[in-house]
Amino acid sequence: MSGHASRSVARLAAVQALYQMEVSSIGVEHVIREFTDHRFDRDIEGVTLASADEAFFAELVRGVVAHQAKVDAAIVKRLADGWRLERLDATVRAILRAGVFELSQRSDVPTEVVIDEYVEVAKSFFEGTEPGFVNGALDAVARDVRPGA
């Protein structure tokens, strides 16, 4: 599997882990261990799940948690007036948090790649307007955190 594909799997898993942490209040190291031990590279009904870049997955999850106040502030700045982060769907929140962390902390990953990847993650969960919302929100945050990008 290419490095790109294993990073895509890591991003999807990071969003799932962030969502799981929010809805169940489990800790970051617990959720990382659960994904590493039980979800990656597993053979389920004869089909091996795609392998993830596990180090990148752990970096994303730990990074969102470590920088959550800054990440959330960057998202809130770009929400419509009167909207609070809590009003967003929990999965959308997790997608935006991972995307904003990557935009703000991983300058080695091109802006277009980050945005495209998280729009694809959104499409894996939603068929409605959410992927477009994720695209617009991450594009706006990218202008804030990557001036001139």
Rank of each mutant, 00 (worst) to 15 (best):
H4S: 14
H4R: 13
H4L: 14
A5T: 13
R11G: 00
A13F: 05
A13D: 09
A14E: 01
A14P: 07
Q16V: 12
Q16C: 15
A17F: 08
A17D: 00
A17V: 02
Q20W: 13
M21Y: 01
E22A: 11
S25Y: 01
S25M: 08
I26A: 07
V28G: 03
V28H: 01
H30E: 14
V31H: 04
V31A: 07
I32K: 02
E34W: 12
T36P: 00
H38D: 11
H38T: 13
R39D: 07
F40W: 08
F40R: 07
D41C: 13
I44W: 14
E45A: 11
T48H: 12
L49W: 05
L49M: 13
L49G: 10
A50C: 08
A55I: 11
A55W: 07
F56C: 06
F56Q: 06
A58L: 04
V61Y: 01
R62A: 10
G63A: 03
G63H: 01
V64L: 03
V65G: 12
V65F: 09
A66L: 15
A66S: 08
H67W: 04
K70C: 10
V71Q: 02
V71E: 05
L79G: 06
A80H: 15
W83G: 02
R84Y: 10
L85F: 03
L85V: 04
E86Q: 09
L88K: 04
A90I: 10
T91H: 09
T91R: 13
V92L: 14
A94W: 01
A94V: 09
L96Y: 00
R97F: 08
R97Q: 08
A98I: 05
R106K: 13
R106D: 04
S107N: 12
S107W: 14
V109L: 07
E112W: 10
V113S: 05
I115L: 04
E117H: 14
Y118E: 00
V119Q: 05
V121C: 03
A122R: 00
K123S: 11
S124R: 09
F126W: 11
E127H: 11
E130I: 08
P131W: 04
G132F: 10
F133I: 14
N135C: 11
L138V: 00
V141Y: 02
R143A: 10
D144V: 06
R146H: 06
